[in-house]
Design a protein around this nucleic acid. Structure first.
Lengths: 132, 132
DNA sequence: CCTTGACTTGAACCGCGCTTCAAGTCGCAG
DNA sequence: CTGCGACTTGAAGCGCGGTTCAAGTCAAGG
């Protein structure tokens, strides 16, 4: 019908996600097909962008239902806005913690402590963050 | 017997982990009790430090078996060292991505786009990273 | 028209990281 | 000695994020 629409195989290929995952996301309300070509789902190309965002958020530790909520966010939803602000603080802390962990790993690669886990420099990763 | 050893209930309380999780970690080889008091596990206080490290790594997205490997690392294990170097690069990328996501969330909190997900500034989160 | 093969469905299954349960053991206070 | 309650075990169960399977549909090419 509309050749600007793409089918699930192509979306899978271009997004790097399995077709089964795309159907799963649809059941969860994260994406939807614009229409059908016979039985086959026909997706708008923008879906790829949306999927990239979904993958990013999922990698960041968001659950799929959180992502679904955030994707539906309207500027008037103050409760959701507050949840996003909370999530922002959470992500900030994760950034700090991951940064320390990265530094520890970086050190581990050249460390001679035996076992590595005993190295005080390595243990930096686990340093208490103020207001943890 | 040895009152420097602490029992599972206290470890649970002080680590914030459930006793069931501690037994689970033991089965997975992540921690071990120094001895037993009757049937009861008796842990060395250093276990708490180790658990903090485990929690940190787990929050960072390491699987429990990865963590077990890394905890056992000896400086002579070159293969493991290489895996840690790889993990370091992975963590670096996650830091970058999370940083972008944090910035997007920060913006989302004050954004007026409707729906939010259409905001170009918000979409920064998903910006392609060179050599992704 | 007929085959091919990518799609469709719902349901069952998976690995991970635990938690819960049932049944039993034991240390310690009274 | 008698509870009590915190511990012990193995096995089963759970929520998440999907994958796999069986059986069926259908579009397009030869």
């Amino acid at each position: 019908m509309d050749d600007t629409l793409i089918d699930i195989g192509e979306v899978a290929r271009r997004s790097g996600l399995a077709a089964s995952a795309l159907r799963f996301y649809e059941r969860k309300g994260l994406i939807r097909a614009e229409g059908r070509n016979g039985l086959r789902r026909a997706y708008r190309p923008e879906t790829l962008e949306r999927l990239a965002l979904i993958s990013c958020a999922r990698d960041a530790g968001f659950t799929l239902s959180e992502i679904a909520e955030f994707l539906a966010a309207r500027p008037s939803d103050e409760r959701l806005r507050a949840r996003m602000a909370a999530k922002e603080r959470e992500v900030s802390q994760r950034v700090d913690q991951l940064t320390r962990l990265r530094d520890s790993l970086r050190h581990a690669v050249v460390c001679t402590h035996d076992p590595l886990v005993e190295c005080p420099e390595f243990k930096q990763a686990v340093r208490r963050v103020p207001q943890g």
